[in-house]
């Protein structure tokens, strides 16, 4: 059999099946309708019984009442808001005052502590400074005294050198060995043994 023909037959059979099923469904719906659909079809449509003037009056009246209620509630809410705001304000002020007072007390205590600590440290520093000052003073006095002694010794030495230079300069032009002869012989006599020892070594 031709393949095309076979396909054509299968499609026809399918279409015939679909048409039959649709017809069957419509027939069932016609003879046995759905309860809800039957109720909807049975309910009569309500039409407004009020006329236009009446509805306008009612609407205006409702709007006036609604406005009145709104104004009343708004006034009440405003008063309550004022009271609440005042209370909040008072509470905030009190809280702020408490916080500030507490913080101030804390700061005051902290400041006192710092002041006491600084005072103690300052006192210690003052004592140390005083001790160092005394030590420095003693050391300086010692150094000044040493320098003074050194200068005195220096002056003494220089003075003695000066005197010696003066004497040597003055006396070396007035030397008379003739006058010293007896002294020289006496010196030799005094050191006779030293001479002997040195010369006879």
């Amino acid at each position: 059999m031709n393949l095309f023909l076979q396909i054509f037959i299968y499609v026809d059979v399918f279409i015939i099946g679909v048409v039959f099923a649709t017809a069957l469904r419509h027939a069932y719906a016609h003879f046995r309708p759905h309860p809800e659909a039957a109720h909807n079809q049975a309910k009569p449509q309500v039409k407004p019984s009020l006329d236009k003037e009446m509805r306008t009056e009612l609407l205006e009246e409702s709007a006036a009442k609604y406005r009145q209620v709104l104004e009343k509630e708004a006034t009440k809410l405003g008063g309550e808001l004022e009271v609440t705001a005042e209370r909040i304000n008072t509470t905030v002020k009190k809280l702020a005052a408490d916080v500030v007072t507490k913080e101030l007390e804390g700061f005051q205590q902290l400041f006192k502590d710092y002041q006491a600590s600084a005072s103690a440290e300052l006192e210690g520093t003052k004592d140390q400074t005083e001790a160092y000052k005394n030590q420095l003073k003693a050391k300086m006095e010692e150094q000044v005294e040493a320098e003074k002694q050194r200068l005195i010794e220096l002056i003494d030495n220089r003075l003695s050198d000066l005197v010696m230079s003066f004497l040597i300069e003055a006396m070396q032009h007035e030397i008379d060995l003739g006058a010293q002869a007896d002294y020289l012989m006496k010196t030799l006599e005094d050191h006779k043994n030293e001479f002997k020892q040195a010369l006879n070594q």
């Binding site: 003739g178 012989m185 030799l188």
Partner: peptide, 22 residues
């Protein structure tokens, strides 16, 4: 000595040394 010795002084010292020391 502090000055140039005279011959007499030299002799005195020399003789004393030769007599008393060497």
């Amino acid at each position: 000595l502090a000055d140039i010795a005279s011959t007499g002084l030299k002799l005195s010292i020399s003789n004393w040394l030769r007599l008393n020391v060497n």
